[in-house]
Amino acid sequence: MKRFIWLVVILLIASPGWAVKKMTEQQLKDLLAADQRSQKSDAEVAADLKDIDLTEELTHSTMDSFKPLVPGQLTTEQLFVLEIRSAVLPPPASEIPATAAPDATKQKAILDKATDYATKTYAQMPALTATRTLRRFQDSAQQDQPALGSHGSAVLAATYTPIRYTASDDASVTFKNGTEVNPLASEKAHWGENSMIALLGQAPEPAAVLQEAQAAGKISWLRWETVAGHDLAVFSYSVDKKKSHYAVDYCCFPGTSQAGPVGMRGTVGGGDAGNYQTSATWKNFKSNEAYRGEIFVDPDTGIIYRLITQVEFKGSDPVKAENQRIDYGVETIGDKKVVVPGFVTIDTVEQPFPDSPQGRYILRHTLFTENYSGYKLAGS
């Protein structure tokens, strides 16, 4: 039974719904065009998009091309969800340059430039402040099943609320040596009590990623890719847990004594999946984890314009997946041009409460976008 339960968990992680349709960018555009010809409403088009998993990155340029086909805000919201969830996928083949791969000597030269840039330029950046606009998207996926040892039917009944935009906020943040100092780390709020999670760990550091990947001997050429007009050299990498210093910190999860979901009338196991019995103990999930991803490098300068990290969790961890992409852009600060984080997407899956005695569990997708603007020297 336990094996069967975790097979269901894996299926839920893989997609936000049961009737998922795999699509390319072009197939998504064809669907929007067909819905427009059928004069579907904004709500109907948005509903069509909720059951789609893209097989390639939904790029900004393609999103812009969709504007004449978008009937309203609900559809726009679901397109943003698809953009975030596809952010770590390769782009359509049409956006990959046909340039031949560099030989091993040139690949090493590019990586040497990237390491030099990450350690001597990016990591030596002066303290900066910026405004961060954070947007959160979240769903609630609940799966009911017979309690272990019961003689009832093994048929599963899924309750699923699609991913929707839930909140946003602006905050002043500080960067030291190119890394954001997370302002949420000092907060005392138990985010889990609000059926929400918070990411308190620091973002991946380009110098640390390169150092660990090269020390592990697990960094290799992947492809060329055009990003914001730059033809970038893309390398894949992986770092196992024993050599990783990638620290995750998620707030918050209840103690294992938690009884489980509580219904609107206070009965365990009933009612709204977003309401839970209060717990006396709430704990952060902190760990150093294995990770893999891609790093995008300007072959001439070594500047890193994009960094992807995909964290690998154990099946028993309350966090099931974390995919993060940082896009860096050029900003003028004083009389200098610097490359700083501009746009970040984070796609996570959590099991916010432990398995209950009733055999009920909940998986939740929480997506974040972060826009940074107004960079200036700290103290100015």
Rank of each mutant, 00 (worst) to 15 (best):
D169R: 11
L200R: 12
P162V: 04
R164M: 11
L232I: 08
G201Q: 11
V239W: 08
E225T: 04
W224D: 04
A228Y: 08
G201S: 14
T174H: 03
E193Y: 11
I163M: 05
K218Q: 14
P204N: 05
Q214C: 03
A167N: 14
I219L: 12
A189P: 01
K243L: 12
G192R: 08
Q211A: 12
N177E: 10
S195Q: 15
G192T: 02
N194E: 14
W221H: 11
W224Q: 08
S195F: 15
A208R: 14
V173H: 01
D240W: 06
P204K: 01
I219P: 11
A213D: 01
E205H: 15
L184H: 08
M196R: 06
Y160K: 13
S195N: 15
E205N: 15
G217V: 04
V209S: 02
P204V: 01
G201P: 04
T161C: 00
V209Q: 05
E225Y: 00
E180I: 07
V173G: 00
L232M: 11
D170V: 07
V227P: 03
A207H: 01
A233G: 07
S172M: 10
S186Q: 14
I197C: 10
E187R: 15
Y160D: 12
E187Q: 14
A158F: 13
T161G: 07
V209I: 12
F235E: 04
V181S: 06
A157K: 13
R164W: 03
P206H: 01
K243Y: 10
A228K: 14
S220I: 00
T166Y: 03
N177H: 13
K218T: 10
S236A: 10
W221M: 05
T159L: 09
A198R: 07
G229C: 10
T159N: 08
D170N: 13
S238D: 09
V239K: 10
L222I: 02
D169Y: 11
P204S: 08
S236T: 10
F175M: 05
H230Q: 14
S186D: 14
Y237D: 08
F235Q: 01
T161K: 08
Q211D: 12
N182M: 09
S220Y: 10
G217R: 05
W191Q: 10
P162C: 10
A185T: 14
H190T: 10
L232F: 01
L184T: 06
E180L: 10
L199T: 06
H190R: 14
T161I: 09
I197D: 09
V234W: 06
F235I: 00
P183N: 03
Q211F: 06
L200Y: 04
V173D: 01
N182T: 02
A207T: 02
Q211G: 09
A198W: 02
K243V: 04
D169A: 10
L200Q: 05
V227T: 06
T179A: 05
S220L: 02
Y160A: 11
S195D: 15
K188S: 15
P162D: 08
I219C: 09
S236M: 01
R164T: 11
K243H: 15
E212D: 08
R164L: 12
Q202T: 11
H190P: 02
A167L: 07
